[in-house]
Simulated assay, not measured.
Amino acid sequence: MKKRLHNPNIAKIHRNYTVEEVAILYGVFKGTVRAWIKSGLPTLNDKRPMLILGSDLVAFHQARRTKNKQKCKPGEIYCVRCRTPKNPAGDMADYRIITEKIGNLEAICPDCDKIMNRRVNISKLEQIRGKMTITLPQALQHIIESNHPSVNSDLK
């Protein structure tokens, strides 16, 4: 079964929770919360009902989220399927514009042949490039700038 990461910001840091309340809050079974306690989620005491501080719950989920994070080096893009940063196939990537400052680098994974994406600020594109050849989108040519205007015109 796939491990699911939960949003740490759901829990209120100034509140105490029981095992049942945490289960309802995160939409999991009570047994899952008890497994979290066995794996390191601190409780106030071992007596029932077990109380969990909201701040401990937030810290526990933040630690679980950052534990497996991997930074991409220059020239690398993270492959979600392989779960590791890799150099793209042929060291080639395409830049797709999202806003005027941000875009996506899209490339093909050399191992699984699937699309890899990396969100990039256009001002930091040179720092991220590494050995990659990045294809930037070409601006579309306006019809006025064309040497051959459209033939579908009634104007003379």
Rank of each mutant, 00 (worst) to 15 (best):
R96W: 09
T43F: 06
H14P: 02
T32N: 00
R4D: 10
N68Y: 08
V19K: 01
I102E: 09
G90E: 10
D91A: 12
I144N: 09
I98W: 03
P110R: 00
E145R: 07
V19H: 01
I115W: 10
T133S: 14
M116Y: 01
K131W: 00
C72D: 08
L41E: 08
A89Q: 12
L155Y: 07
I122Q: 09
K71N: 14
C82P: 09
R81T: 12
I52E: 01
Q141S: 15
L51K: 15
P149F: 05
G31N: 08
P149L: 07
I134G: 09
K3D: 04
C109A: 04
S123N: 14
R83F: 00
T84I: 10
H61I: 05
L5S: 08
R96G: 05
Y78L: 01
E76F: 03
R119S: 13
D46F: 08
E76G: 04
P8Q: 07
M50D: 01
V22H: 02
C72T: 15
D56S: 13
M116Q: 13
N147D: 15
E76V: 11
D94G: 02
P49K: 07
V151K: 13
G75C: 03
E100T: 13
P149C: 02
T43H: 10
G103Q: 00
S146K: 13
K3C: 00
G40V: 04
L5I: 03
P137C: 12
C82T: 11
C112S: 04
T32H: 00
E76S: 07
D46I: 11
H61C: 04
E20F: 03
S153E: 06
K38A: 12
G103R: 04
K156P: 06
N117F: 08
S39R: 07
Q138V: 12
T133D: 13
Y95N: 09
V33M: 04
K73D: 10
T99P: 09
L53Y: 03
G90H: 11
I115D: 07
G75T: 09
T66V: 07
K131V: 04
M116F: 10
E145Q: 14
N147H: 07
I77S: 06
T84C: 07
M1C: 05
R96S: 11
V28D: 01
E21Q: 13
D94S: 15
H14W: 08
R118F: 01
I102R: 00
E145M: 12
N9G: 12
D154K: 09
D94N: 15
R4T: 14
I52L: 06
A93V: 02
D91S: 06
R129W: 02
E76C: 05
N117Q: 10
C79G: 03
